[in-house]
Design a protein around this nucleic acid. Sequence first.
DNA 1: AAATTTACATGACTTGTATCAAATTTTAGT
DNA 2: ACTAAAATTTGATACAAGTCATGTAAATTT
Lengths: 226, 226
Amino acid sequence: MFSDSNCAICERKQYCFLDFELPNPLSQEIEHYEMSYEKGETIFKQGTIVPHIAYVKSGMIKVSLEYGSRKQPLCIEKEGFIGLESMYNDKFSQYSVLALTDVKICLIEIESFKSAMRENALLAVKIIENINIRTKHLYERIITLTQKQGPGRVADVIICLSERIFKSDTFCSPCTRKEMAEMCSLSFESMSRILKEFKEEGIIDLDGKNVHIIKKKELELISRVS
Amino acid sequence: MFSDSNCAICERKQYCFLDFELPNPLSQEIEHYEMSYEKGETIFKQGTIVPHIAYVKSGMIKVSLEYGSRKQPLCIEKEGFIGLESMYNDKFSQYSVLALTDVKICLIEIESFKSAMRENALLAVKIIENINIRTKHLYERIITLTQKQGPGRVADVIICLSERIFKSDTFCSPCTRKEMAEMCSLSFESMSRILKEFKEEGIIDLDGKNVHIIKKKELELISRVS
DNA sequence: AAATTTACATGACTTGTATCAAATTTTAGT
DNA sequence: ACTAAAATTTGATACAAGTCATGTAAATTT
């Protein structure tokens, strides 16, 4: 749906993050500007007024719900929109977004984006498609977090990082053990123990943050039964 | 956002579930028909091809994710759309929808609805607003299910039924203990024990499916700390 | 009214995971 | 390379919640 090229609002090629041509010129320009964030920086903070949606152009970000001092990460993203879910709720961000690596982001002023959607049905429909995909992933997360035990959740996170983010059986995790634990809604001691078990059973190889999946089938089995 | 009146696609008043006027006539009619379901009937079955979205006109429905033999209910709804989340994913329903009471539903053929959105940006934008609200509720569910223990989850479900569905401190639960347990991702014995505790502590009164909230503040406290 | 099913309650026991408390390794700064 | 800080591993213990077993009450059917 969305092309691989960078958000071209910024490059003045109109909407190149969409894979179809929009009527040009649009009746209204979409206001935007590009920002860089360093690894570890907070891009959106839950509960604060965020007058933007964003398009991640490069790097990796993590979206988390915050609850008191605890975090529940929802997803990790390499390229794509963030903030589409909050457009029509209220102006306060519903989640926090953290830069896992150095990132380049196109911040898009929300009101002008809304105006553009009101005047361009194809844009609005593409946004619905995008939201739909996110919601589907959210359903998968809910099943993982509510219907599986520790090992199944850990297996799911490893499979997800491998397939969705890195598209390789070997990758360097963008998260610390603590963050991995949060993603699975586990204590980080439990995460540590489960990873150790996976390693001892020869299912994965671990060296710091480097993960290598040895027995993919075994991992998928654990995901299903645990 | 959506008016209280019934889905007037069915009554031939165009789009009366929206609180604004659309250009009339639309370039394309939206195909639809009305159906009645009895309490206990499955309206959508997860994994089957569902060529509709639906608008609940009266009665009460429950949306659940299924995972093997287990269910994870997402929400209970009195009036509103169902199926908006699946429109652009694939044709297989991502969740099951069950009639908790006798219901009247307007089934809307999905392709004609999509066509209408492509030609009418205001409709598409209203649908985004609707999806946004659902996503927000989903975030709250995720926090409840992942960050709280049994008593907190039970408190949340009771508060939610009271405030969102019945708008009263006294109501007759549309769910059995088993369904209540599923909503909280608890075993039904645990649900039974927690409800008994709430009753013994005088927080709620229980008589079969009749629930009366006595100490609302206490319930809210449990929701926060447990 | 009796029988059957369904829903709910409760006690005993087990288990997964959190928590607490070190010990050890890795990472980053000087 | 050395030190300090951070991250990770590991063990002991506690506890929430699941499971199993059984009992009771309410609702349906016969």
